[in-house]
Structure formats: structure tokens, C-alpha cells
Amino acid sequence: MTAGAHTRRVSELLGGLMDGHRASLGRALTLVESTHPSDMTDAAALLDACLKHCGTARSMAITGVPGAGKSTLVDELGMGLIESGHRVAVLAVDPSSLRTGGSVLGDKTRMERLSRSGHAFIRPSPTRGTLGGVAAHTRRSMILCAAAGYDRVLVETVGVGQSEVAVASMVQCVLLVLLAGAGDGLQGIKRGILEVPDIVAFNKSDAVHRNDQDRSIRHTHDAMHMLRPDVNVPVVGVSAVTGDGLQRLAAEVTACLEQTPKPFMPDATSLFHESTTQLISHALQQGEGPFRPLLEAARDRLHDDTDDGPWSAAAWFYNQLNTELGGRR
């Protein structure tokens, strides 16, 4: 593809996004997910252009234990936002198989009403091994969705674990979804994840006795107060099936999104460092470019008579890289 063709591709995609074309958004998302060198260059140009057109977009992550009904709750909350005049994009992150790299990508089927709405856009996305409950390209996808006119971007993340706290740095509001009546509501949940939510919802409250739900809410509220005494985190019991508690939860979500002091995107310097880190990590994993000779030499040290173990070989690689970069200053 010639330089002119690359420029036209970026220009056409940007124009399509500005006009709110869903097909253009789909193609743009595919472009930023690609690891082909020419695609990565075009994606970078497109993202830089889109960053100026995020407008008044707001973002929220929905994370929680498996089986808590996150997708069904997203469906209800998303429709409520649409009825309030917003356009909603959902980035549903699915875990990838460590063996095959594949993922189920089935969340869209559980968002029946949103998937039929002309004011919603749903994009299932595999993590491909990325920690943090988000895919490596989640931030970039959020920018594209906002530029396409979706002013409410919802990120449904993978499960609950220590690494899921990374999503908090990407969004303006975090909703933690737990199962009502599942014994100790905090059992198995790491302290780190309790330090990030702005709202906690106990879903499927229709399936448990009211006393059990109230006990779970009370225990969670007390735990949140101990961990974050200076922040009042709402804890709400809801049922996506019966609709109980949804109105209050929707009000809490709206208040969080409208009152947050956090910007939709961090400053340019932060985005630069994040992007650079991702690109270097990708190059290291693939053994590409200027890293290849040093990586091969470092791997050779594992199998020759230097007695280097994996950490020593990695330290040698790092020191050699520092030496090379220092010599080019």
C-alpha cells in the first residue's frame, strides 16, 4: 500500500467515524487491534486524530465475580442511558484461552435489548492474555467509540482478581457486581479490588431472602468504610430480572459519571508512555526489530557454558540494551 493509500484509509475511516457510521467504527476497531506494522502506523494516525473528538464522553467499567449477571445488568443500565438521550458503546472483554488464544465472545448474546438498539454498539474483545481485566487495546477502542459519537462507553471486564484494578486507571467510574446471598459476599475478593469501585451492586437479589441481601449489603458497606473511610461508596441490591433496585443503581451511575473529576482520557504524556510500553512489550514478545539480535544472544546464554539462569540472562539483556541505547545518545 502506497503512502497516499494509507493517508486515504485513515481519512476515510475518520470521516466515517465523524458521521457516526457503525461499519466505519467496526473497521477502525479492527485496525487498532491489528499487529501488522502498516496497520499499527495507520491506527496511530487515526487515534491521534480521534483524540481531539472525544467531546463530553464518559466511561464506566463493570467488573465482578463470574456468574454475577454483569452482561444482563449492562443491558439494563445501557438501555436506561439510551432512554436518557445517550448513545452507548459496550466493550465486552472476554478471557482468552491460554492454550489456543481463543475466546467465547458471547457477552453480546446476553445483551438482547442493547444489541437490537440503533443507539448502541457492542464490541466483544478477547484479552489475549492481558492482565487487568481489559484487553491491550481497550483504551484505544474507547477513543474510537467516543469519536464516533458514543458518549457513554461501558467496559465489561473479566472476573475479579488483583489484576483487575488496572481497569480503574482507564475509566471514570467503576461498578463492582457481586452475587447476592453467595455466603460471605467478600470471600475470595482481594483487598485491591475493593479499593477501586465507586459503586457496589449485589445482583440477583430476587433469588435470595431479603435478610440475606441486607446482611451482605451491610457487611460490604462496613468493609468499604474501613478501607476507604473518606469515601462514601453506595452499595445497592438489585435484580436485573425483576427490576428491583435498578432505578437507584441507575441514579448512582448517572451521578458518578456526571460528577467525576477524572477526564475521559489522561494527558498526552501519559498516553505516550502507555503506548510506548505496549509497543515495546509487543516487540519483545515477538522478538522484532532491534531487539532480535540481543534477545537471541540472551537466549543463547541459557544454553551455553555461561551458567546463566533465566534471571541472569534477562539481566544481561537489559544491561546490553542500556549500553546500546546509551551509545546512541
Results as ranks from 00 to 15, higher is better:
residue 255 A to C: 06
residue 261 P to G: 05
residue 222 D to T: 07
residue 91 L to K: 13
residue 60 M to H: 04
residue 141 S to P: 07
residue 69 G to K: 09
residue 92 A to H: 01
residue 308 D to P: 00
residue 118 G to R: 05
residue 213 Q to M: 08
residue 112 E to R: 11
residue 265 M to W: 01
residue 226 M to P: 01
residue 28 A to L: 07
residue 202 F to G: 09
residue 64 G to S: 08
residue 143 I to W: 02
residue 175 L to F: 02
residue 196 V to L: 04
residue 305 D to P: 00
residue 142 M to V: 06
residue 84 S to N: 09
residue 118 G to H: 09
residue 178 L to N: 14
residue 274 E to S: 08
residue 275 S to L: 05
residue 32 V to Y: 08
residue 254 T to M: 13
residue 216 S to W: 02
residue 36 H to Y: 06
residue 88 V to G: 02
residue 266 P to M: 01
residue 124 P to C: 02
residue 328 R to E: 15
residue 150 Y to A: 03
residue 270 S to R: 12
residue 2 T to L: 11
residue 175 L to I: 05
residue 230 D to V: 04
residue 277 T to P: 06
residue 132 G to Q: 13
residue 230 D to F: 09
residue 114 L to V: 00
residue 238 V to S: 12
residue 201 A to G: 06
residue 49 A to Y: 04
residue 74 V to S: 09
residue 25 L to W: 00
residue 35 T to E: 06
residue 56 T to S: 14
residue 236 V to Y: 02
residue 269 T to K: 15
residue 254 T to G: 11
residue 272 F to S: 06
residue 66 P to I: 01
residue 295 L to N: 06
residue 308 D to G: 00
residue 28 A to P: 02
residue 192 G to R: 13
residue 305 D to S: 09
residue 58 R to Q: 13
residue 25 L to R: 03
residue 21 H to N: 09
residue 203 N to Q: 04
residue 182 A to K: 08
residue 86 H to R: 13
residue 96 S to C: 12
residue 303 H to G: 05
residue 269 T to C: 08
residue 79 M to S: 10
residue 234 P to F: 10
residue 291 F to Q: 02
residue 207 A to C: 08
residue 319 N to Y: 09
residue 140 R to P: 01
residue 158 V to N: 15
residue 146 A to W: 01
residue 31 L to T: 07
residue 75 D to C: 04
residue 309 G to H: 08
residue 308 D to W: 07
residue 254 T to K: 14
residue 240 A to Y: 05
residue 273 H to T: 12
